[in-house]
Amino acid sequence: MQPQFGGSVKMVKQVTVLHQPADVVAVADYSVIPKYMFKGDEGQKATADWSIGFLGNAITFIYTPKSKGAKTIDADNWWRVLSEPGVQIGRSNPDTDPSGYQTLQMLDLANRYYKQPELEAKVLANAPKTNMRDTETDLISALELGQIDYLAIYRSDAVQHHMQSIDLPAQINLSDPKFAADYAKADAHTANGMLAGKPIVYAMTIPTNAPHAKLAQEFVAYVLGPAGKKVIADNGFIPMKQPYAMHRDKVPADLRKLTVDWPQ
């Protein structure tokens, strides 16, 4: 196995536009695969015709004991602390990485949830582009060194890196499909257009021209099975009891039986 990591849109475009070979493509936003791979990207041919949503996650902020406000921050006052002068916040690029635009969607939801229409603007004033990277994990060392105070990141990363995090309400952290209708009211402005909020569901597919398609199917089956779900849970993710398949009729038969149809 030769894994490559990066922002989901950026990595997908390496397959769709740059024609780099890949056996499995996994993304942190399920909509990336149908948007760029099902229909073809930038005039290219389609590179996949199915996808499987296999785990969930949540947006949070991580911090250290050295972070400004670390002693007083909690799930109720976090937005006040993050808006204070001098606080430095890191985040990923919303043009290239799902956690980047999901952070913007979460803040848009927070405007409404806390009835603070300027909340998002005040927090983002402390998260300038100089504090932005292609992926949020690139900023963990900056957080540990005290160069930034807080980092917008997935709950799974907080668990894996043993970092303190803020337990944001499910109404805004994009973790719970039952709030999907509310999440959809949130927007993120990106170079790829306006993106509406949705539950955080990670998805994967096997490209139509995968060099090792049989091995790829075995890997996906492992991820969807009991052993794979245990790994998912141990690393702070939310495994799906019944993975959802988009275009389920086109999923390879051995994988199809492990899934249910994607909810309409």
Rank of each mutant, 00 (worst) to 15 (best):
Q2T: 10
Q2S: 11
P3I: 02
G7E: 07
V9Y: 11
Q14R: 15
Q14T: 14
D23R: 04
V24S: 08
A26W: 02
Y30N: 14
V32L: 11
V32W: 01
I33L: 08
S51H: 02
S51G: 09
T60N: 06
Y63L: 09
K66I: 05
G69A: 12
K71P: 03
T72Q: 12
D74I: 05
A75D: 10
W78L: 00
R80N: 12
P98D: 10
S99Y: 14
G100N: 07
M106I: 01
D108P: 01
L109D: 03
L109A: 10
N111G: 09
K115W: 06
V123E: 03
K129P: 00
L143C: 07
L145M: 11
I148T: 06
Y150D: 01
I153F: 02
D157M: 14
H161K: 12
P169V: 07
Q171R: 08
I172W: 03
D182T: 12
A196R: 14
G197H: 05
K198F: 08
I200D: 11
H212D: 08
L215E: 15
L215R: 14
L215A: 15
A216P: 07
Q217Y: 03
E218I: 06
V223N: 04
G225E: 04
G225W: 06
G228D: 10
G228C: 03
G228T: 06
I232Y: 01
D234V: 13
Y244A: 10
Y244M: 08
M246W: 04
H247W: 07
K250L: 09
P252S: 05
R256G: 13
